[in-house]
Design a protein around this nucleic acid. Structure first.
Lengths: 204, 204
DNA sequence: GTCTATAAAGTGATAGAC
DNA sequence: GTCTATCACTTTATAGAC
């Protein structure tokens, strides 16, 4: 990928290409999404795609960056309101579920985008790692607010990791079994409450 | 895919092709794994691959079938021994973790194998669904043994679904972050115990 | 910035000798 | 069952007119 990716920040045609590419890639994966399919999907010739993004990997990288921005921009504040821990936990989990429901597309790009070991350039790997890290950060800070502890505490980090794992697993389940599957909110409430109690007792 | 896939059940060359194909597909996904790469990896010409499996989809299907058999054959008995529920739950989770550690390859085929919406034939979709269902069945029966309830009870099924989700999410985490990441056994013990108590109280 | 045209390589799949 | 050779097509990517 050369530096042509820096040309033209948010022109309509660039966005149209990214729309087509992200739809196709989240559906079929990186390898199975060809430039020609993107071209027919967005109506622009292949050479325009190369002019904007330089290479197929350049398209992939731009798709990931936009997906990350979209999803992170849609996250609510990490300050959770509510009288007690159970109420705040319920409110927080509802917010998580809403993000989960609203962004199946972007989450699939994060979670299920074909294999990465050789397919993607290191920039794409870094982008995905940042993506995941930002989600984890948001979860930990929000959980800190729920339990009135620092978001950087071991407990908040640990609970965030557990929740991120479940969100990833639920994203798989949604794709394998039921496209409308939601997060198991009740189970999560019970499980996170129990884990929090264990942490507070200092048993870990 | 034609019926040539039924020729020769377990000849050495057939196994060699499947070894190469499953390694490549679990690493790079279905779309990014070409017949020629399989050919060079196993040392047999492309035409031999077509003679054995009829098509690329035929190879994929055979890979999935063998992965399923391998993984399911390695599952321990669903009867869990131990004095009390906590002991049996610990023993069971250790067994799950061992399967998780021992079969990263087969689990990746189940979980991460590129996108499926159009790539795979319906036979492959059915194979994957069966695969997942069999795992779920084993989890539910084992959990039934742990809690001394029927494996078909709502509680066992519900806990199995929760655990399967986490195993899938952990498989993602293993691939994204840490190749040696294991299942969060302590967290799972706490979470499953709490969920079981909630079920037994009939609160769900 | 977008168009047509095309190069160079790789793809799935097949034919036919042995 | 495995080999070489090959077909028809698609792939990524570029050249150059407008």
């Amino acid at each position: 990928m050369n530096d042509t990716a820096t040309r033209g920040r948010t022109t309509p045609s660039r966005e149209a290409i990214l729309d087509a590419a992200s739809t196709l890639m989240s559906r079929y994966g990186y390898a199975a999404t060809s430039i020609s399919r993107i071209s027919t999907a967005c109506g622009l010739p292949a050479s325009s795609i190369y002019w904007h993004f330089g290479s197929k990997e350049g398209v992939y990288l731009a798709v990931l960056q936009r997906a990350r921005q979209t999803l992170l921009a849609g996250l609510p504040a990490t300050t959770v309101a509510g009288a007690g821990v159970p109420q705040r936990l319920t409110a927080f989990l509802a917010a998580v579920a809403e993000v989960f429901d609203r962004h199946p597309h972007d989450l699939r790009l994060l979670v299920g985008i074909s294999m990465l070991e050789e397919t993607a350039c290191s920039a794409a790997r870094a982008e995905l790692a940042d993506y995941r890290l930002a989600l984890r950060r948001w979860l930990a800070d929000s959980l800190g607010s729920v339990f009135r502890i620092p978001g950087t505490s071991e407990m908040a980090e640990s609970l965030a990791g557990f929740l991120l794992t479940i969100a990833g697993g639920a994203s798989i389940a949604r794709w394998f079994e039921d496209p409308d599957a939601a997060l198991p909110l009740d189970d999560l409430h019970v499980a996170l409450s129990a884990l929090a109690r264990t942490h507070e007792r200092g048993q870990r």
